[in-house]
């Protein structure tokens, strides 16, 4: 079990959340080319270490959050609201 500190609801079991994967900047659809867009769409960093990712609190406040999680130990060192300096 991972304990996720939801910015709205407080610490909750990760089973209440849906995992949405690593955060990454979305290219501007009007400026981008095919290579950059398909890279954004499909390729993953998939690091073994600290990563920033989106979770959705589907059985709670039904809002997205951004978590800094270590993918080897599953430790979460911070959570925050998307767009508030915590990634896109």
């Amino acid at each position: 079990m991972i304990l996720i500190n939801c910015p709205n609801c407080g610490p909750r079991n990760s089973a209440e959340f849906a995992y949405f994967g690593e955060t990454k900047p979305r290219p501007d659809a009007n400026e981008t080319d095919l290579a950059e867009w398909s890279h954004y769409l499909y390729m993953k960093r998939n690091p073994a270490g600290w990563t920033s990712e989106h979770w959705y609190h589907r059985e709670g406040c039904r809002k997205f959050l951004v978590a800094e999680r270590h993918t080897v130990t599953n430790e979460i060192r911070s959570t925050g609201t998307p767009g508030a300096g915590h990634g896109g």
Binding site: S14, E22, T71, V72
Partner: peptide
């Protein structure tokens, strides 16, 4: 498991 991880610990769930 429903999230990405390199951890190979089992869970009670």
């Amino acid at each position: 498991d429903p999230y990405a991880s390199y951890s190979m610990r089992g869970s009670l769930e």
